[in-house]
Design a protein around this nucleic acid. Structure first.
Lengths: 350, 350
DNA sequence: GTTAGCACTCAGGGAAAGCGAGTGCTAAAA
DNA sequence: TTTTAGCACTCGCTTTCCCTGAGTGCTAAC
């Protein structure tokens, strides 16, 4: 059976109406929305075809039609109008971005919050590294006999530090030498090689040194591993309950649990595309089988990619969400994608 | 009217049954649970008294009685059996605590998660400082012409650091001198005095220096202000929806929104007591008027206090929650309350 | 002070009925 | 071959009504 232009048009009407109202749409209502005069009986014939082809479904015999996941997919791929944002909408995004974010660490979390207020669906945000992070530099600072500060500068320009205490007293003068040793042996190598290297040194240094080196290398290993960016932030998760499809408390709980207490398993992009959409059953997690997710990514610095995901019912407003989210992600890249954060601007100056 | 021993006994039975089943309890059922033989008619007379005194209420005329907030309060203050944990329960807590937490920064978040699995109600966790945090020490490390690392050690032993870039190139040899200057003028003073002090120095140093000092002092100010511990973590928030009183989606949404997207406003202890309980309308936030909160705090290091809160319906199992939570908080204090984190123990050794 | 007895209240559940939106099919018209 | 009008049929939803049973308050007797 062929998917005629008219069938597509009908599908588009059904999808957009359902996105708007969450109510099935009947042949008569469709006929009224169609340009030209066509009878509802004709529409019914078309609807029967569309159902047979799998683009539409019926909640029950005497109800109107609603889109199937396949129908949404066609809509997203072909039918949806990818209208760019109006200048006003763009201005709103640029305004909210201006002067807000300063520390790299905060960018991710705030970006998620801003996206949520932009699209009015729950969002989540995370970041990951394009290539492996390594340590760029170590520095040990004296505090007292048994404690010192370890400063670790990472290849992505983050700097982490911690106060450490050891059991045996350490000669303060030894710290620079140890820093040097760390810098020559433990920079620019992946975490998994660190322990081996440390073992290789174990008989060349005195126990006090080894104690210190061990602590510092451990610490660096931790930093590289879960490099602080596996953390996922969600915003506005409870909004999911305002959608009629999640008025059912058990469904709502399932999804809330996933978004709030199981964030780490929210989907991440599987392609390099700037935007990816997962519709209903296309999701791997069971909890999301009745939801859709729109994901966009943006650059942070040279070597990091931020992720923003939008979660909604399958009938979410793909056109609007996609338009706003992609513009937002582009803006973020424009702002944070370069090497370094821009210097703080003077308030109110051009 | 007097609150006789028998009345208290009846109240206790009603509260505990309602905590267990969430169903109102009638005179006949109470009569069966009472020791000795008393007729339901007698119980009815007592119930009428208890209602009149405000300890019990009726959902509707032909239903049994349920406790009022005042009833719960009396129960918590006088009637509840504060049984200590069994050795098995204590062991379970100690086990889960062993070897888990290392970095001070993670203690708070993990403590909340562990508490949630312990009590099986949603929990939240935060920390705050007993007395104001100040900077204990500054350290500036050279990176290149226009960038350097600022390391700031705080009075609570946290160490924070960040890479900074300035517009004018800075003589690397000047950094130690600037560190010295910062250490002499900006340590041990509250954040609000910093800016004034910086202004006082503005005509004594060259512009390049001022640029650097400004950035560092700004950064320190930020650290002291929202000192990274206003952050609130929640665990198991979605569990709230399993309770029958929150099967209503709107109620559930209200509470979820509060716990997930508005965590910062969750209640904090108002007294120094080791444990505080807020019952229903005793809560200030509207969103919590139909819930109860049990809060406990514990020490982290010398100068910080961790907070764990448990959120549940007003009929939450106060006795169990209070017992477990207070033991857990005590254990945490025992473990982290001292000056410094204990050295990492060897696995499997006594 | 306690108890038995009785009339009364009221939420919840189930059955029955009516409504109305929407369908599929048929046969005629274009 | 496509479109249309017409019609019988389906089925979820809502409303109404009734019944049941748990529980109450009150009274009068123990």
């Amino acid at each position: 059976m062929e998917l005629t232009e008219r069938k597509k048009q009908i599908l588009k009407i059904v999808v957009e109406s359902y996105i708007d109202t969450a109510e099935p749409l009947g042949s008569k209502a469709i006929a009224e929305k169609m340009p030209g005069k066509i009878s509802s009986a004709t529409i019914r014939n078309e609807l029967a075809d569309l159902s047979e082809m799998g683009y539409l479904e019926q909640p029950h015999t005497s109800a109107g039609r609603i889109p199937s996941a396949k129908g949404y997919r066609l809509y997203v791929n072909e039918l949806m109008e990818r209208r760019p944002l109006s200048p006003e909408e763009q201005a709103a995004i640029n305004d909210s971005l201006r002067g807000e974010l300063r520390q790299t660490e905060q960018v991710v979390a705030r970006a998620g919050q801003m996206a949520q207020s932009l699209v009015n669906y729950p969002t989540y945000a995370a970041a990951d590294h394009r290539s492996a992070v390594t340590v760029k530099r170590f520095e040990l600072l004296t505090v007292d006999d048994t404690s010192f500060i370890a400063v670790v500068m990472l290849s992505d320009s983050r700097v982490k530090s911690q106060l450490m205490t050891v059991d045996l007293p350490v000669e303060p003068s030894a710290l620079p030498a140890m820093s040097h040793l760390l810098n020559t042996h433990f920079t620019a190598i992946p975490a998994r090689e660190m322990n081996g290297k440390l073992m290789g040194l174990s008989d060349q240094v005195v126990p006090e040194w080894f104690l210190v080196l061990n602590r510092v290398v451990d610490y660096a290993g931790e930093l590289l591993q879960d490099d602080g960016h596996t953390q996922v932030f969600t915003s506005g998760a409870s909004r999911i309950m305002s959608f009629p499809e999640f008025r059912d408390i058990d469904k709502a709980q399932g999804l809330m649990h996933f978004m709030v207490d199981n964030k780490e398993n929210l989907p991440v992009p599987t392609t390099d595309a700037p935007m990816q959409i997962l519709i209903g059953p296309e999701n791997v997690s069971d909890a999301l089988k009745e939801s859709s997710v729109v994901m966009a990514s943006y650059d942070i610095g040279d070597n990091m990619r931020g992720l923003i995901g939008v979660v909604g019912p399958t009938r979410m407003d793909y056109a609007t969400v996609a338009a706003r989210l992609s513009y937002f992600a582009e803006s973020l890249t424009r702002m944070f994608g370069k090497r370094e954060l821009p210097a703080k601007e003077e308030e109110g100056n051009p």
